[in-house]
Design a binder for these strands. Structure first.
Lengths: 341, 341
DNA sequence: CATGCTAGGTTTAGCGCTATACCTTGATCG
DNA sequence: CGATCAAGGTATAGCGCTAAACCTAGCATG
């Protein structure tokens, strides 16, 4: 159906390999005249190389997998700030003439299957639990460049791109302490899921220690990264810890739920309680008051992921194993001084 | 490197074709005993079929493209309610053992290129201008099942899945009229971009007519689907049309910006002005007051897109050409009776 | 003048799989 | 009892491309 190399070769009166060389820009082997003639025919006939044939013959697919956890039969849930990374990833890869395959993973073995079946050159692991990444063996991923986002894995097979989670938490907590808060709660999902939360917790704890504020484990709550869980947490917080005047949360959506919950419990933000979010999601500015939050460098994350992957594909000697991007505190309306007493 | 059909065939002492038949579940041609023996070896050796080889030999890739506009060098911007559709699409396709390739399109020709190069079986066109879809020729898309989302194209080559935009607008407008509003504005992007906006406009207009309310073109504003543009619109609306007591918008994000703009201009929602959004995005419930909006059936959209595509791939005689899904009005806090005067 | 070298090609041998035609063997049947 | 047929396979010929080895003239070189 489609036009093939053979057709072009026949029309140009050269061998198939000459056309292949021209199409792939292998300068050395063809004269300028031949090259131009072939290129003209390629354009005219609308030749488009077959990716499967290339992948099969060249053992490289120029395909990168975007692997996302898919719990059971449920669909992928890509959170809003991840979506932006996906869009940027796609653009970077497209510039380099790579393609992106989106794949939900529900069993560990599916990672290997996806990599092998499609002969992927690389893959980006988005939102996986660290232990999933640690379980990957050289047998699984031989040859493919794996980049894990926001993980803190011990697996040398995976390149890693993340934000400075420890530093972000320091920034947020330091801001609250600077405002005069002493009873500062920490709310985020379980540590086990990802090292990210633990790093943020450690940053929080370090700043408390720096300022001689006693760490109170009761002020640390395990709250899922959802509006509903944030809401529930906000409702019970004033009852359980009336002395808390500020909360550092690990996600904007959680913070927004929290603020609504606090309001339901009769506490205003930032009048009674200050709240700091994390991620600087779009919606941070849609709520009232606008959310004070820690911003990640999303474009940087996508760019670094691609850079790391390309370095490894190029067989760079000692490519960076992990990159940590800077974060910034965005001061808006949800953090202020504690109430007078 | 990987295990191939040949390896399995050698180990099982059968021909390569027998293994191929077993792996592909072609019952007829193998005895149960042989089938089991082969399956055991396949499992043991961790055989994974090569998608490129299959695609090449079978002229079918089991790959579906997810084509999204990418303006110039910028990255894909997938709006939040689209993201959900993407996740659901992926799940549906994965269940059917298809894979999804995400591809940004910046020139029209890239659609064809993507389809041909990867030998795609089908493609979902997300967020394209109707005229882009109309320009697709049989030459471009021969054999691939194209599904366009939210388009009203005249091109019989594309299957279409959309919500009942006309009906959604009717619902919203009727709600406002029922509440007692007479001066109701319409805010949305230019009609030219997509028939969706025009259908919603027509629904709005029809309900006005039904109730004998004179249509005033001055109350129709071209506002982009962004928070910023909604905000600007909200700021100027009370000045330009102080008598407007309600606004029907074509997007939640626009509505949220609008509400903020109205607040900046000293108008409260729903006290002074009622606002109805569209899409029932997650963030509709994060803002205060929670947004009254028109909800689309997102899971239905994804499922229908896949069903339509599979029907066409299966060569169904008269597959549906377009599907329109039901919508529902979600009453929350931004629409109330007009102020007393 | 044999030798090497370079430019500009061509030939060959697959990559891993599937479609299709073909081949046995034993049972069935008019 | 020869023809027919189904079950259970096998052999062959690609799909469209690339890597790698090979070829051939024309020219410079010691």
């Amino acid at each position: 159906m489609g036009v093939t190399l053979k057709d072009i070769a026949a029309e140009a009166g050269v061998s198939l390999m000459t056309v292949s060389n021209v199409v792939n820009g292998k300068q050395a082997r063809v004269s300028a005249a031949t090259r131009e003639r072939i290129m003209r025919i390629v354009k005219e006939r609308g030749y488009v190389p077959s990716a499967s044939a290339r992948s099969l013959a060249a053992r490289s697919s120029r395909l990168v997998g975007l692997l996302v956890p898919a719990v059971g039969e449920s669909s992928l849930t890509i959170d809003p700030h991840t979506v932006e990374v996906v869009g940027m990833l796609e653009r970077e890869l497209r510039r380099l003439d790579y393609h992106l395959m989106l794949r939900g993973i529900s069993r560990h073995g599916e990672i290997t299957e996806a990599l092998r079946s499609w002969n992927l050159d690389g893959a980006v692991l988005l939102g996986f639990n660290d232990v999933v990444i640690d379980r990957l063996t050289a047998d699984d991923v031989g040859g493919v460049a794996l980049v894990a986002m926001d993980s803190y894995s011990a697996n040398p097979l995976a390149l890693e791109v993340r934000s400075d989670d420890f530093g972000g938490a320091e920034l947020a907590t330091r801001h609250l302490v600077g405002l005069g808060h002493r009873r500062i709660a920490f709310a985020g999902p379980a540590f086990s899921a990802t090292g990210v939360v633990r790093r943020r917790f450690e940053g929080y704890r370090k700043v408390l220690a720096e300022h001689g504020i006693a760490f109170d484990p009761d002020l640390v709550s395990e709250v899922e990264t959802t509006h509903a869980d944030g809401l529930a947490y906000g409702r019970r917080l004033p009852r359980e810890h009336p002395d808390v005047t500020a909360v550092f949360t690990t996600a904007d959506i959680l913070a927004i739920g929290l603020i609504e919950g606090l309001a339901a419990a009769g506490r205003s933000v930032p009048g009674d309680v200050s709240v700091v979010g994390y991620d600087n999601a779009d919606l941070a500015v849609y709520v009232t008051p606008k959310l004070t939050t820690v911003a990640q460098d999303l474009p940087g994350k996508a760019a670094e992921a691609v850079r790391l992957m390309m370095d490894r594909l190029a067989g760079k000697e000692r490519p960076a194993q992990a990159v940590s991007l800077d974060v910034a505190l965005i001061e808006r309306g949800t953090a202020g001084p504690p109430p007078e007493r």
